[in-house]
Nucleic acid binder design. Structure first.
Length: 951
RNA sequence: GGGCGGCUAGCUCAGUUGGUUAGAGCACCUCGUUUACACCGAGGGGGUCGGGGGUUCAAAUCCCUCGCCGCCCACCA
């Protein structure tokens, strides 16, 4: 006998191990059984090695698992490919912090090799905790194919892609402004910067005109906008939110059409504090309506100014160190100061010089590192590697426009288009140690003089991009025309070059490798094909690429989805996936984003501990509706745990009543209306659930299953089965036993993708009392039912019975009829099938409505509560319980209902415009409603009259 | 500044191409130890669908407009 409740704690680990051991997670079994099995592939969004399972993962992976399990049951060769991302910045920071906490030497003292070794050790030891947690969730990934973005195969793919794109001119080196993280001292991408509104100041500075020049500046204006008064100025006022950058100013710009400054263009100002003359230039970037209309131009420290500088060929003066301290390009007094300290100093010094024109409070958005939201990102001039994203974006745009890849919900396509249409070069180099080291080598340029001696060309380099060091050395040897060795770094290479090796003097030529690593997203962009074995033409790649569906969240559409599209199309010629399902964002029960600082983080594993994985999974599925975020509450999870218990107890009931699967039983052969009816309900539910999964309507998947199992199967079918099972009709009893077991089986099958543990457990335990199962539920075929299994007669009959029982229960409750009372029921005016139905369903009706008997009669007995049921009138003989006033109120309410119907229908039917325009079926519907209403009204009116007579 | 969502019962959400008296779950109220289940059963109350305007015989649904709330992108001297 089953326990009263399901115990997930002991069952879940056991079942997961059994699934894994069975090989069900791998597509190989399905392919062995059926070599033509349709491939179905999902690549997991690889969680960070540093990560642990949060609610977002729980949602994302639940949905993937629902899809994977559904397709597996359908007989597809399902590959859900798991893996992890090395997460460059995040992981390096974790290990660095750990080193610091342990009082260890820092990474720079440790050296690159030792540090990277250390990160690997950490990764082996504690990384990947999340994959263990995915198992707790029930994720049916093929762990035998697990990949890691830094493993050998994926690294080879990364090198191949880099080298190929470089040869195609789609990866290049460039010196331009990047978003620089002064604490990590690395470039980051635009997407990793978050602009936060900050209250700050706008400072106005007076820049004196060079050579004592003066000009007339307007100070008063007439109504026509013409200046009416001027003052003589020997300075120009510029406004800035970043005073410290003035030390790097290269010009002051005014608008070409700005009359105020027209005479000044071409002249110079003397940059205060620095004492360097800089030109006043005309550029449309200067907005006459902003600030003073004159803007300082600092080309090396502002993205807009960089463009202006390019147009006017201004010098790029970088005044910061990598830590964002002032460097030696600024006057001595400021050298070594932090940028924020320098800001105060500059303002103070300007004020002391009488050049501070004013300070206004100002709200501006400041670029922060989006992860920590603590570090202000600095535009910084460096050499970096870039991907020509614009070129790659074209095919990625087309593929979604022409529907080769679709987004679900569809509106996300717009987001995708917007970003790709305005895409900028992608900076892919990072000044970190944990990641894919860029496969590029440099060598000092050498020129030979007439005597055959080598001349070093300082500052000029050979650039060699190859997949391996051997290839790089070979290429270098070819270019230099001699043997080439590899140096540790540039310094060593220069030192060795200066050491003559033979006579006449020849330098000792070496090359050194680029120090930088690639942006983590570079390797992630290859994930759908690199994990399948690319660049090798593996069986998996041939079979599973393009993959089927990607399930991910909207915040990485740019970071990841778009880049996979670009890389996938470029290197395989095909889209990486047919569909992208964007799952919702999980918020707490107050609608707040979960965050550690808010302290509102819900740990999904705690929910699994408390309610079981199935309850959490069902919750996630049920809440994945059209809304774009979902509020997770414990209460909801508890409710779905209860749902599991309900199913469990239904199985328990079946077991107690010997409802055991019967070998060879054909549900197509049942005769009892109740069984015919429930068969149709199974068919309808299966169709609805199948369609909902196929269209990613996960809320409908859960809703359909919930209603079927609870409201149809438990509330009605099992209740209707009870009288049969307790009855004497042995044939009906046998049929119902077999049918109940069959329906329970169907419920388990249909529910399995969402709630795999409880269903698999029931699948096994119910089999202990019946025929053995041919397979575990995980590999049991998804049902396809024969046509014609929906019996409309049975549907009508049971529908009638359910309505009748409902009416009686309602009256009993309203009239306070004690549960123990068993009044008789009389049905007046039964027509057509009515009497036969009554005869067939008598036994069920008597039990469910708690009445003594039900019979048809010509007239209702006196002292009965009357109700209408279609064309018939029901009379429940509860005279001793009838409170005349209450009964009158009940009837009056019913009458009002009918009268409302009549009025509404009449209004429509009496409207010529409605009759002329409305669809025929709508008119017919209203006619019917009118007729029903009038019939009901007549019956209730009669009942009221009887009541008056009794009074 | 541009864009995308949302505003429906106390709460969280459904509501397909306009067409029953706008639904569900939870919460609430009443009743119930009927031998699967109190993690349960039966019954019930509760919404002028954010405001305004329009189209239509008919609008939660289509159009316009306003108002909030959330998010994304861009800019910010």
């Amino acid at each position: 006998m089953l326990d009263k409740t399901f115990d997930p704690k002991t069952v879940e680990p056991r079942l997961y191990a059994a699934w894994e051991a069975s090989g069900a997670f791998s597509p190989d079994g399905a392919l062995a059984r059926n070599p033509d099995a349709k491939p179905y592939c999902i690549v997991i969004p690889p969680p960070n090695v540093t990560g642990s399972l949060h609610v977002g993962h729980a949602l994302n992976n639940t949905l993937q698992d629902v899809l994977a399990r559904f397709h597996r049951m359908r007989g597809d060769a399902v590959l859900w490919l798991p893996g992890m991302d090395h997460a460059g910045i995040a992981t390096q920071m974790v290990v660095e912090r750990k080193l610091a906490a342990e009082g260890n030497i820092g990474r720079r003292d440790m050296g690159r090799e030792a540090f990277v070794k250390r990160v690997w050790a950490w990764k082996e030891e504690s990384g990947g905790a999340i994959t263990k947690q995915l198992r707790r969730l029930g994720a049916s990934c093929d762990w035998s194919r697990e990949r890691f973005t830094l493993d050998e195969g994926l690294s080879a793919a990364v090198r191949k892609v880099f080298v190929t794109l470089h040869k195609q001119g789609l990866i290049y080196r460039d010196k331009r402004l990047v978003n620089w993280h002064p604490e990590l001292q690395t470039a980051i991408s635009d997407l990793e910067v978050e602009n936060l509104e900050t209250k700050g100041s706008m400072w106005r500075f007076r820049y004196p005109l060079a050579g004592g020049a003066t000009y007339q500046h307007p100070v008063e204006w007439g109504e026509d906008g013409e200046a009416t008064a001027f003052e003589t100025r020997d300075y120009i006022v510029v406004a800035t939110t970043r005073p410290e950058t003035m030390l790097g100013d290269a010009a002051v710009a005014v608008h070409p059409d700005d009359a105020r400054y027209a005479g000044l263009v071409g002249k110079s100002v003397m940059l205060p504090l620095v004492g360097r003359p800089i030109p006043i230039i005309a550029d449309a970037y200067a907005d006459p309506d902003k600030g003073t209309g004159a803007v300082k131009i600092t080309p090396a420290h502002d993205f807009n100014d960089f463009q202006v500088g390019k147009r006017h060929d201004l010098p790029l003066l970088n005044i910061f160190t990598a830590e964002a301290k002032l460097n030696d390009e600024v006057p001595e007094a400021y050298r070594g100061l932090d940028r924020f300290v320098a800001r105060k100093r500059v303002v103070a010094d300007m004020e002391a010089l009488g050049l501070l024109d004013g300070i206004d409070p100002h709200v501006l958005s400041v670029p922060y590192d989006e992860k920590s939201k603590m570090v202000v990102i600095e535009p910084y001039l460096t050499d970096q590697w870039y991907v020509d994203a614009k070129t790659l974006a074209g095919p990625a745009l087309e593929a979604v426009q022409d529907g080769r890849t679709t987004f679900e919900p569809k509106h996300w396509e717009k987001t995708y288009f917007n970003w790709l249409e305005g895409i900028e070069p992608w900076c892919i180099s990072r000044q970190l140690w944990w990641g894919h080291r860029i496969p590029a080598w440099y060598g000092i340029k050498i020129k030979q003089d007439d005597a055959g001696n080598d001349l070093l060309l300082a500052g000029e380099y050979e650039l060699i991009v190859e997949e391996t060091e051997e290839a790089a050395v070979a290429e270098a040897s070819r270019r230099y025309g001699r043997a080439v060795a590899v140096a540790q770094d540039r310094e060593e290479s220069v030192r060795r070059a200066a050491t003559p090796t033979e006579y006449p003097i020849k330098t000792n030529v070496t090359i050194w490798r680029d120090e930088d690593v690639l942006d983590t997203w570079f390797s992630s962009a290859l994930w759908p094909f690199s994990t399948l074995g690319w660049p090798e033409d593996t069986d998996d790649l041939k079979r599973f690429y393009p993959t089927s569906t990607l399930v991910t969240s909207f915040d990485i559409i740019f970071f990841w989805v778009a880049r996979m599209m670009m890389m996938g199309l470029h290197f395989t010629g095909e889209v990486p996936f047919a569909n992208v399902f964007i799952n919702a964002l999980v918020l707490d029960d107050m609608g707040q984003k979960m965050s550690k600082t808010r302290g509102n983080v819900i740990d999904p594993l705690e929910l699994v501990d408390e309610y079981g994985a199935d309850a959490l999974r069902f919750t996630m599925t049920a809440m994945s509706g059209p809304a774009r975020n979902i509020r997770l509450s414990k209460q909801r999870v508890e409710g779905y745990r209860n749902f599991g218990t309900k199913l469990w107890n239904a199985a328990r009931f079946c077991q107690m009543n010997e409802c055991v699967a019967v070998a060879g039983f054909d549900p197509g052969s049942v005769k009892e209306p109740v069984n015919l009816w429930v068969r149709g309900e199974v068919v309808k539910t299966a169709a609805a659930v199948t369609k909902a999964i196929e269209t990613f309507a996960f809320d409908e998947v859960a809703g359909g299953l919930y209603r079927f199992i609870w409201n149809i199967f438990c509330d009605w079918y099992l209740e209707l089965a009870k009288p049969i099972l307790n009855g004497t009709d042995e044939a009906a009893k046998d049929e119902t036993r077999a049918m109940a077991a069959w329906v329970l089986d169907q419920a388990m099958i249909l529910l399995h993708p969402v709630a795999p543990f409880i269903t698999e457990e029931l699948w096994a335990t119910t089999a202990e009392f019946g025929p053995a199962r041919p397979a575990m539920l995980i590999e049991t075929p998804w049902p396809v039912y024969p046509e014609g299994w929906i019996d409309t007669d049975a549907e009508a009959e049971i529908g009638w019975l359910i309505d009748l029982v409902g009416e009686i229960r309602s009256i009993r409750a309203e009239m306070n009829v004690p549960p123990s009372a068993r009044p008789p029921l009389v049905l007046v005016g039964l027509s057509g099938e009515g009497p036969a139905r009554l005869a067939r369903q008598q036994a069920r009706l008597v039990v469910l409505a708690r009445i003594s008997e039900a019979r048809a009669a010509e007239v209702a007995p006196p002292g009965a509560a009357l109700f209408t049921l279609g064309e018939a009138t029901g009379a429940l003989a509860i005279a001793e319980f009838i409170d005349l006033a209450a009964e009158k109120a009940r009837l009056t309410k019913a009458l009002a209902g009918f009268e409302g119907d009549i009025e509404r229908a009449n209004k429509k039917l009496g409207n010529p415009a409605f009759m002329a325009n409305a669809k025929e079926e709508v008119v017919a519907e209203n006619r019917e409603k009118l007729a029903d209403g009038e019939a009901g009204r007549a019956k209730i009116t009669a009942a009221l009259a009887r009541l008056e007579a009794m009074d």
